[in-house]
Simulated scan of single mutants.
Amino acid sequence: MVEYEACIMGIRAVIECKIKVLEVYGDSTLVIYQLNGEWETRDPKLIDYQKLVLELVKEFDDVTFCYLPRDENQMAYALATLASMIKVNKQEDVKPIQMSIYETPAHCYNIEDDEEKDDHPWYHNIFQYAKNREYPNQASENDKRTLRRLAIDYVLDGEILYKRRKD
């Protein structure tokens, strides 16, 4: 039922936008195949939902229902995460979200080419703090606090830095 309810809400929102051609992607094989007419709807609770969806789609010139497996539905998870992060008042207009798709992971764009390269491994500052209780030269108070918090999760055995675990 939840899948049908989400479908109905989405279709109603699209109708308000005056869109006439619609592709609906869903990760419920049951709902998608029932709406395509490939499977019979036997559950009495679902029959009314199916009828409502089929009534709503009459507003469109063309509608297709496409099955998209859950593990391939990354965009839906990303949008759900974004939606859970913001609060919207009913009186406010919601600004559109502009998205870009990059071939390289986003964290790689945080590293600028002109940054100084120090040839130290990522754990160097943690190692130095665990060994000698020394901070990097230009460390701010916030940097020092963060380094202390990170170092708690590591233990130094001679010259080898280990991450603390239950064992």
Rank of each mutant, 00 (worst) to 15 (best):
I32G: 04
K163E: 13
R164Y: 01
K117H: 11
L54G: 04
I8N: 02
C108F: 15
S84G: 02
G37L: 01
P136N: 03
P69V: 02
P105E: 05
Y77L: 04
Q50A: 09
Y162Q: 06
N132H: 13
A151D: 04
H120G: 06
D157A: 11
A83Y: 01
I15Q: 04
I97T: 12
V63Q: 01
K117Q: 15
K45P: 00
E159Q: 13
Q50P: 00
E23N: 12
Y129R: 05
A83H: 04
Y135G: 02
N137K: 12
K117G: 12
A139V: 04
V57N: 09
A76V: 05
Q98L: 13
I86D: 08
L68Y: 01
I15Y: 01
P44C: 07
A151Y: 03
K163P: 03
L82E: 08
L79E: 02
L79K: 03
R70G: 04
W39F: 15
C7Q: 02
N132F: 15
P69S: 02
E134T: 15
V63T: 07
I111C: 10
K90G: 02
R42K: 15
T104M: 06
K51E: 08
D71H: 15
K144E: 12
N110T: 09
R12M: 13
I160D: 12
R42H: 13
D113H: 14
E23T: 10
Y135E: 06
I160L: 15
Y49M: 00
S100N: 13
L82D: 09
E103G: 06
I8T: 11
R12H: 08
E55Q: 09
Y102K: 09
Y67N: 05
R70N: 10
E116N: 11
